[in-house]
């Protein structure tokens, strides 16, 4: 499962770490690997920052390992872990928002409504420029709808799976995804058409 060749060492560490029996920590490792991308995207949804999201999931894993004895194996791992990730991500996000008072970030972050003339002298479609606009436009969407959108679009989860991971009804998740897409299309319409 591991892509970096570290998984053997990590498994060995899992076997001797945590506050619960070794079997539980090993099972944690398996479940964590299985749902990692979902958890990371939840964190991305809340924070909008992939780098920060990685730190969030790591911190959430530390908390989960401490509380492993409290986890009921008959319940959904991703729902339990997703809740911890949301909690940590929202805390991190609040901290980041306080920092955003520094004019630097506001100046550096591109505005969603920037005209396509600013895309560069070449005039062609520049994926980096467009991605910056998408990132900025994502700020217009609330945290949980944004997480629903990422889980659906990037991860391709079903609405039932999104519902389990984010603890929202499947119909609400679907509504969040549709509305988020409409918001992005509205914000980015001229950028995608190159008007």
């Amino acid at each position: 499962m591991g892509v970096s060749g570290q998984s053997g060492a990590v498994d060995a560490r899992l076997a001797r770490q945590g506050s619960a029996p070794a079997l539980a920590t090993e099972a944690f490792g398996r479940a964590f690997r299985q749902h990692f991308r979902t958890l990371w995207l939840i964190a991305c949804g809340v924070t909008r920052k992939p780098d920060l999201a990685e730190d969030v999931v790591q911190e959430a894993a530390v908390i989960a390992l401490r509380k492993l004895a409290e986890f009921d194996p008959n319940t959904s791992f991703v729902a339990w872990m997703g809740q911890i990730v949301r909690f940590v991500a929202m805390n991190q996000s609040r901290r980041e928002q306080r920092r955003r008072a520094v004019p630097l970030e506001a100046a550096a972050e591109p505005a969603a409504g920037t005209t396509s003339e600013e895309a560069g002298a070449g005039g062609g479609f520049d994926p980096n420029w467009f991605d910056d606009r998408v990132l900025a436009a994502l700020a217009e969407i609330a945290e949980i709808p944004r997480a629903c959108l990422l889980l659906r679009t990037v991860q391709g989860l079903s609405y039932a799976e999104i519902s389990a991971a984010l603890d929202v009804p499947a119909g609400t998740a679907m509504s969040h995804v549709f509305r988020s897409r409409q918001t992005l299309r509205r914000k980015l319409g001229s950028a995608t058409r190159g008007d």
């Binding site: 499962m1 060749g5 899992l14």
Partner: peptide, 15 residues
Amino acid sequence: VERVLERALRSAPSR
């Protein structure tokens, strides 16, 4: 994922 899991394990308490 392995990098994140490894870091988490380093920070987690020993059993």
